[in-house]
């Protein structure tokens, strides 16, 4: 599954990132395989999602969250 579909109040682990022009940008923000990820907040009407990664809150659109493959930790 991808980070676009993770459930609230549950911690996941990032497995891999899809290869797109955004890949490097994600990695440099600290979105990396092996890191723990959980949902912090979700904006209404399928707006951006805010994730908690490494103690940082990072907001992504659903399309970008969909590039992050995760598994339950």
């Amino acid at each position: 599954m991808t980070a676009a579909k993770l459930k609230p109040r549950q911690t996941y682990e990032i497995v891999s990132l899809s290869v797109t022009p955004l890949l490097v940008r994600m990695m440099e923000m600290g979105i990396l395989p092996g890191k723990k990820i959980s949902l912090f907040k979700k904006a209404p009407f399928n707006g951006p999602m805010a994730f908690l990664i490494d103690g940082n809150i990072i907001a992504l659109r659903i399309e970008e969250a969909d590039l992050i493959q995760i598994k339950e930790a």
């Binding site: 805010a50 990072i58 907001a59």
Partner: peptide
């Protein structure tokens, strides 16, 4: 350019 949102809060 592709539009995206990736921001630190």
């Amino acid at each position: 350019e592709k539009s995206f949102l990736m921001t630190d809060l």
